[in-house]
Amino acid sequence: MAGQILVFIEHYDGEFRAITQRLLSIGREQAECVDARLAALVLGHKLDRIVGSLSEMNLDTIFTVDEEQFETYNPEICTRVVSEAIGQISPRLVLFGDTHMTREIAPAISVALNAPFLSGCLEIELTATKLVVTQPKYSGSVFVRAELEPVPGMVMASVQSGVVHPQLVCKQLPEIILIKAGTNNGEPRIRVLETTAAKADGIDIAKASIIVAGGRGLKAKENLPLIRDLAEALGGAIACSRPLCDLGWLPAHYLVGMSGKTVSPSIYIACGISGATQHLAGMSGAKCVIAINNDASAPIYRLADYGVARDLLEILPAIIKEAQKTNT
């Protein structure tokens, strides 16, 4: 097939987003399958450090758009400039991470470039004639495999976090090409006032080696002590899935997943959490996962080392008691 596979690189505060390694390794794998070159596109300002790190990631080309106006992310400007850049580069396949930013701008880029966008892929396989993807449906309870054949001139896809492939061994130094952003004549319709990272009140769950996380299966705020007591008995920290923050039971810095923290503790105990892909994105790096969920078919069990398919209201008190006994 030849041509190029382009990976869109996201970064914040000088650091790559968590998905970057996975994207680049998938990109390299696919590039080898179809004999294409692997390129990255990165937008921002003062990109030396990011470009330096990217240079060690076995890329053929790095395209940069490095201007002061991109210091902070603005969805309107970013959509326009990334569309123009991708249009110029004209790759066969563009890979994005399935992140908030991608979800915000990629559908609009696909309209601008008239290129189909396959979102939230778990796997992706490009051959000379077709593109095969695996995507979750129905909250991740089923997966579908779908084919795009023939592959149009340009396709875009976003990839969910998941298995991180082995480190990319650097075989060559990439060519670095600076792209200049075109000017926009229209009146801006979006003004960015501030961009901030959530502040924790002293607790950083990402540092805990044992995490007891609660989900909607806890049913009522009154049941929060069940995860608190277990965490305390085990010397760990508590965390939660999104509904508990939405309901105001716990503040946002306890949230694990795509919107919140990425954690990789030794032990992650998920109580009443279904295992939506957005939650798994934040905890799939845990060494030992224990799931307590009375639905034995819940997706969380895909990732669990140990499972307890019982009512948590009934089983957690027994586990707390046992943990307290063992620890005293």
Binding site: S110, V111, N114, A115, P116, F117, L118, V132, P136, K137, G140, S141, V142, F143, V144, R145, A146, E147, L148, E149, V155, V163, S284, V289, A291, A296, P299, Y301, R302, L303, A304, D305, Y306, G307, V308, A309
Partner: peptide, 24 residues
């Protein structure tokens, strides 16, 4: 029909476990 991906669904399946789960 601007950017309609002509996707053909070839398979619907229950996700495979990533780890082998020991149920207690």
């Amino acid at each position: 029909h601007s950017v309609v991906p002509q996707l053909r669904f070839t398979d619907v399946f229950k996700p495979q476990g990533i780890k082998r789960t020991q149920m207690l």
